[in-house]
């Protein structure tokens, strides 16, 4: 490794550390609510009541399940199924289905409703 390579590693580590507070601020702390966002808009769901939510994405449906205060993607019409493998959303770690343009993040309070969500 050259000195320049070491600089690259230090720069990436520094970027990761510097982006941590900003990234944390992008996602609200756990407040018992989650925001489901899709191409048609967004809606807030209560994590204290179990339920199943279907969000219409760009390439198909993304199915979210709320159970015991956690929200996960149980199935999605996307090639890699990364969103299904990501597990439950957590503060600072949203669940995203990028091909469908759908995400779930924690929220503090109720938001607007989304026509494309069916429960």
């Amino acid at each position: 490794m050259t000195r320049g390579d070491t600089l690259v590693v230090v720069a990436v580590v520094a970027l990761a550390l510097l982006s941590a507070p900003t990234a944390g601020a992008l996602v609200a702390p756990a407040g018992g609510m989650a925001v489901l966002r899709g191409p048609a808009g967004s809606t807030t769901v209560d994590l204290s009541s179990p339920g199943r939510y279907i969000v219409s994405g760009r390439t198909g449906d993304v199915v979210f399940e709320v159970d015991e205060g956690a929200i996960t993607v149980t199935s999605a019409d996307c090639p890699d199924q990364l969103c299904v493998r990501m597990g439950a959303a957590a503060p600072g770690r949203p669940v995203i289905c990028a091909p469908n343009g759908v995400s779930a993040t924690f929220a503090n309070g109720p938001g607007e409703s989304l026509d494309a969500v069916s429960r």
Binding site: V13, G101, S103
Partner: peptide
Amino acid sequence: GQLLVAAALVTSAAPLALLPVSLGLSI
């Protein structure tokens, strides 16, 4: 780059919350 495109696709900055862990694992 992918997270920026993902943020544009979901029209939310939420994907950028994954930046610290993604950058760390990219090393």
